[in-house]
């Protein structure tokens, strides 16, 4: 090609990452089992699944840290299995490894410049510091920062070479809710700048909130892919009507002829909704003592998608 870029798979010129039938075995253990997906320029792609599903193995193959045992993967059109291509990939990707820590006794700014010096061209450290909102901490040593701030340094470091695609491996694991939101904020800023982001996570809400495209991976295989809405519509099941804190008593007060209701924690009553049923149910409730309870309609989430696809839920710890 004229710009020196190697040829991507035919007919997919805007594909930043293309993976076909990729697999990775460790002895007898199959970590990744013939997966295929692609990532388009400007997209935030979430690889969603529990611990041990094969997320990190896949992302590390794309980062040229591991060699695949089968299939093909291209990043920015370069083949991750070819040594000469790997050098090109390394120049142009940004990586935040899982559980990454920068160097303890270097300041925020020094850390950014340290990792930046590994590349021929690096972005201005102060601009990155601004992007991750660490202006007040720029001269603070890394070890003195809180977990959330440390992760923001990691994000800045992953962007230091102005990469064409950023790989964020479990960027919010172990962070408190506030710090998670801060990281989300940075990813949103990247998205608004048109960066392509590859994110792995076991947090369903994170994938739903941030991602344009979600691929759910379990036991080394992709079990569903699509936009969060598509996944929820296809696999999420019915909407649920929730009557807050109605308790056992409330169950007995429900009008007859409703779909099967169940009692959830905190005494909430949950009633699965079929399309077009809502008005009828609400009218029915209006005639019962439950009419003054707080009522909401809950849309299914990716949690429900995962539950419906695998028969289990993913815990907060990712198991």
């Amino acid at each position: 090609m004229s710009n020196g870029q190697p040829a991507p798979f035919p007919g997919q010129s805007d594909k930043i990452v293309q993976v076909e039938n990729l697999s990775k075995k460790y002895g007898e253990n199959v970590a990744v089992n013939g997966i295929s997906f692609s990532l388009t320029k400007g997209e935030v792609f979430a690889f969603l699944g529990p611990n041990g599903a094969g997320k990190t193995t896949t992302v590390e193959i794309l980062e040229c840290l591991r060699n695949p045992t089968g299939g093909q993967a291209k990043v920015l059109g370069y083949d991750v299995s070819k040594r000469s291509d790997q050098a090109e990939i390394r120049k142009r990707i940004g990586v935040l490894p899982q559980d990454f820590n920068a160097i303890d006794r270097l300041t925020v700014r020094e850390n950014i410049n340290y990792f930046g010096a590994m590349f021929k061209h690096q972005l201005d450290a102060d601009k990155l510091i601004e992007l991750v909102d660490l202006k007040d901490k720029r001269d603070e040593q890394f070890k003195r920062l809180s977990g959330g701030l440390k992760q923001r340094v990691g994000l800045a470091v992953s962007l230091v070479n102005d990469p064409d695609v950023v790989f964020l491996d479990e960027p919010t694991t172990g962070l408190d809710p506030r710090a998670r939101r801060d990281v989300w904020g940075v990813v949103e800023r990247l998205k608004s700048q048109g960066k392509t982001v590859f994110l792995t996570t076991h947090y369903m809400d994170e994938a739903e909130y941030l991602a344009d495209i979600v691929s759910i991976i379990d036991h080394g295989q992709i079990i569903a892919s699509g936009t969060p809405d598509q996944l929820i519509d296809t696999h999420g099941g019915k909407k649920t009507l929730i009557i807050r804190e109605a308790g056992e008593e409330g169950l007995k007060q429900l009008p007859l002829g409703l779909p099967k209701a169940e009692l959830r924690n905190a005494g909430d009553i949950a009633i699965p909704l079929n399309n077009g049923e809502l008005t009828n149910i609400l009218m029915g409730l209006g005639a019962t003592p439950l009419h003054d309870k707080e009522i909401e309609v809950r849309r299914p989430t990716l949690d429900d998608v995962f539950l419906n696809l695998t028969g289990r839920r993913v815990s907060e710890e990712g198991n």
Binding site: L65, R90, K91, V95, F100
Partner: peptide
């Protein structure tokens, strides 16, 4: 352990 080496291995170093 701190994944600094892993990070560096993804750069041209």
């Amino acid at each position: 352990e701190l994944k600094i080496i892993k990070k560096l291995a993804t750069t041209p170093l």
